[in-house]
């Protein structure tokens, strides 16, 4: 529960202090806008047989998966939150984050693979650094250009792919 509590707390605190800075920080893109779309309480689960629905707008920087993203959202670039735009290459090397899905309250392991091989998408810039660390912790560092793992090192946009479910002690 420790990870959940931390994420929760920060969400609420961030919403409280965004307004004074909304007009600035173009570097962060939309990260401080639209905070009101993030629900503070987990919504009741959908029917057990169906995959949990997702909540929120994947084109918004506040979308739950983007908690450790840094870059242009592929959702706005002809791809989606987990697919690359046409003609780009998904770099296999990447950084990893853990974000909480408000629909089911679970923490998911998110792989932020970059799409590479074309000039920068240039829109939907989003930088959120929950759990992010400097490059001495490469596994958690979104400052590095991870297109170093692709044929072309030219960065286009970033995805947020669900690759696992966090293991919670007591399971």
């Amino acid at each position: 529960m420790k990870i959940l509590d931390k994420l929760f707390e920060q969400s609420a605190r961030k919403i409280a202090q965004t307004d004074s800075r909304r007009s600035f920080i173009k570097w962060l893109g939309a990260s401080l806008v639209g905070a009101g779309t993030v629900p503070l309480l987990p919504v009741a689960r959908a029917a057990e047989t169906t995959r949990p629905a997702e909540h929120g707008d994947p084109a918004s920087c506040d979308y739950w998966r983007y908690c450790a993203v840094d870059g242009f959202l592929c959702e706005c670039c002809g791809g989606s939150y987990n697919t690359c735009p046409p003609g780009t290459e998904m770099s296999p090397l990447t950084w990893i984050g853990t974000c909480k899905n408000p629909i089911d309250g679970r923490n998911y392991v998110i792989s932020y693979n970059d799409c590479c091989g074309k000039t920068q998408c240039g829109t939907c810039l989003c930088q959120r650094d929950e759990g992010d660390r400097p490059i001495y912790r490469a596994d958690k560092s979104n400052d590095v250009n991870w297109c170093l793992g692709a044929e072309s090192s030219v960065y286009h946009c970033s995805t947020a792919v669900v690759v696992g479910v966090a293991f919670e002690e007591g399971q």
Binding site: R13, I25, C67, Q127, D129, E130, G131, D132, D143
Partner: peptide, 10 residues
Amino acid sequence: EGFDGSQTHG
């Protein structure tokens, strides 16, 4: 108003 996640924001 810093928090875990604001470290590179300024």
